[in-house]
Design a protein around this nucleic acid. Structure first.
Length: 301
DNA sequence: GACTCGTGGAC
DNA sequence: TGTCCAAGAGT
């Protein structure tokens, strides 16, 4: 029984293999083009929060054509952003992106800020997105830890089938330790690991034969033991407030005219109390603008 | 930390 | 058919 060297001990080999794999196998995504602006990168990152690439790409193209700069978006009504968001899900992200555009106009001369603290201060920009923009848009040597990176490292280094339900400090430290020393390599490293997680080291049915570092993988060396850590509770859908909100929002998204409350009643007829509760929350969130005469529309200026 | 927040595709 | 999952953030 031969012992494989730990991936940490062979960091440079890991980097070389994964970056080499990326150069050959990476998808040609528009926000990765050299011509992509920091704004274009930021928009892509927010859209990609919990939403698959295939659904983001066409919407991203429409957004960037319509709003090529933060100032352009800031000049539109928030409701226009929600409408253009389409069915990407989590529509509050559209509002936050709009609010971020307004903030960039107010505080940063209409530019995407470059420091981590300034990025984090933008609505809708958390630890992941701030790191991603820092690395991908500005080429900073920043560790990017998303769900793909977490899964790849969980398997490769920890020998676990999947990452824990929530991000730990140890994962941040590991990702930082594996970051290439040289800025130029670090720039590609993050997106390369993410791409590995998205295309090869996927959650279900990983394609280990196609993996450039399968001979260094602790999980594979251990014969792919089943994950036995804490379980993430599954999210119910049918009959939830989220489904109700989605139905109500779809009604407003389908028209530019104010919608009478009676039309919303018809869209969710099963539970009056739930519908009213969701309507209230949509108004509170700023996704619905109430108008005189019990009517609603997407928020204007 | 635990919850909440959309949507649709894959198996 | 129902469950899992997808470049998370805010409270």
């Amino acid at each position: 029984m031969s012992e494989i060297p730990s991936p940490l001990a062979r960091r440079s080999l890991l980097q070389q293999r994964i970056v080499g794999w990326y150069a050959k196998e990476a998808r040609d995504l528009p926000w990765r083009a050299r011509s992509a602006s920091p704004w274009a990168v930021l928009v892509s990152e927010v859209m990609l929060q919990q939403t698959p690439v295939v659904r983001v790409e066409p919407v991203w193209r429409e957004w960037l054509e319509r709003w090529p700069t933060p100032a352009a978006l800031a000049g539109s009504a928030p409701g226009d952003a929600v409408h253009a968001w389409g069915r990407l899900g989590y529509p509050r992200r559209a509002l936050r992106l709009h609010a971020a555009a307004v903030a960039m106009v107010q505080r940063h001369s209409g530019e995407v800020p470059t420091t981590p603290s300034e990025l984090l201060a933008l609505p809708g920009v958390g630890a992941y997105t701030a790191a991603a923009v820092s690395a991908f848009a500005f080429g900073h040597r920043t560790a990017v830890v998303d769900t793909n990176v977490r899964r790849v490292f969980a398997r490769l280094v920890d020998g676990a089938g999947q990452a824990a339900p929530s991000l730990t400090r140890a994962e941040i430290d590991l990702a930082t330790a594996l970051l290439p020393d040289e800025v130029g390599e670090a720039r590609v490293w993050g997106v390369a690991v993410m791409e590995m997680g998205a295309l090869v080291c996927v959650a279900r049915s990983p394609r280990c034969p196609d993996c450039p570092v399968n001979d260094l993988c602790a999980w594979r060396a251990a014969n792919q033991p089943t994950y036995d850590g804490p379980v993430r509770p599954s999210q119910p859908w049918h009959g939830t407030d989220r489904q109700c909100r989605g139905v109500l929002l779809a009604v407003l998204r389908a028209t530019k005219k104010p919608v009478p409350a009676t039309e919303l009643d018809a869209a969710w007829p099963t539970d009056d109390a739930q519908r009213d509760r969701c309507l209230d929350s949509l108004v509170t969130d700023g996704l619905f603008e109430p108008l005189p005469g019990s009517r609603f529309r997407l928020p204007g200026r």
